Computed example of a mutant assay.
Amino acid sequence: MLRPLVIAPSILASDFAKLGEEVRAIDRAGADWVHLDVMDGHFVPNISFGPDVIKAMRPHSQKVFDTHLMIAPCDPYLEAFAKAGSDIITVHAEAGPHLHRSLQAIRALGKKAGVSLNPATPASAIEHVIDLLDLVLVMSVNPGFGGQKFIASALDKIRNVRALAAGRPIDIEVDGGVTAENAADIVAAGANALVAGSAVFKGGTEAAYQANISAIRQAGAGARGEAA
């Protein structure tokens, strides 16, 4: 069974001066999830926001809050992100020595658990935690900044992750340089959840967001032989 096609705009590309308004705008514009990139200036060379900002955004949408932790260590902060309103919490395979423990902790908090893989990390990194996963996030740029170009070798990694998932109910998500132009290739490789920042928020209006989300969804749905 195919997992549902999901478009998850990355709030990192929004106007931070009006976060609540931006969350409401992408919700109305057709976003399935809200993707929240948390960066610590240590694991990645940028700092974004923490659990208090997610808590402030939470009342503005009932959509899934898809929280991507680019932080190390992550374990001390999992409870705070769960309490802030995250529905999915994704940690990096490279961020700590005890990935299995981190995933157990996320599940124990009642949240869906994900693992993210940097461009240089092989799909095999998830092999021994596959039964704890609800989501695998394939990074198609080096994490830390928006607006980067898609790394084409990510397509092979998506195929490898799909083979490892082997029919399990695991969402395969891709983040980095996703556009309406490459969405079909990404979905054809096996992804069902597409994170897009710049490609969604360009234009700066709700009408633009709706058109941008629709274009990505149409490309992805076409690759699956579905109507958008």
Rank of each mutant, 00 (worst) to 15 (best):
R168S: 09
H35N: 13
A199C: 09
P76T: 01
R107H: 13
R101M: 10
G144D: 03
G222A: 12
S48Q: 00
A120H: 05
V200C: 06
G41F: 13
K63H: 11
Q104D: 15
A25T: 02
P73Q: 14
S102D: 14
A166N: 14
R24P: 04
G222R: 15
A25Y: 10
L155I: 08
R162W: 01
A191I: 11
N142T: 04
R107D: 07
D15H: 00
D156G: 06
G190T: 07
A223C: 10
A228M: 13
G20Q: 04
H98I: 08
G176L: 02
F201T: 05
N182V: 04
V91S: 08
P97F: 13
F43T: 12
G147Q: 09
R3Q: 15
R101T: 15
G204E: 07
M57H: 12
A184D: 08
H100N: 15
I213Q: 02
L99V: 14
S48H: 09
L69V: 08
L103Q: 07
A31I: 12
D75V: 13
T121V: 08
G30R: 02
L155F: 10
V200T: 07
A25H: 02
G96N: 11
T90E: 13
A95P: 09
G190C: 08
D185F: 08
A17P: 13
A80F: 06
N192H: 10
A193Q: 12
A113G: 12
G203I: 00
K55A: 14
A113K: 05
Q104P: 01
L117C: 02
S198G: 10
F43Y: 14
R224G: 04
I158E: 03
F65Y: 13
A193N: 10
H100L: 00
I88V: 15
I158C: 06
N142V: 02
A56I: 03
M39C: 04
A188L: 09
P51D: 03
H100E: 13
P76E: 01
N192W: 10
V6Q: 09
V34S: 03
L19V: 01
N212T: 07
D156W: 03
A120F: 01
E206M: 01
D32P: 12
K112T: 11
A29I: 03
P9N: 09
G225Y: 05
R168P: 00
D87V: 11
A228Q: 13
C74E: 14
A31C: 12
A207C: 03
S214C: 10
D37G: 03
E226R: 11
Y209D: 05
A17W: 07
R101F: 14
V115L: 02
T205K: 00
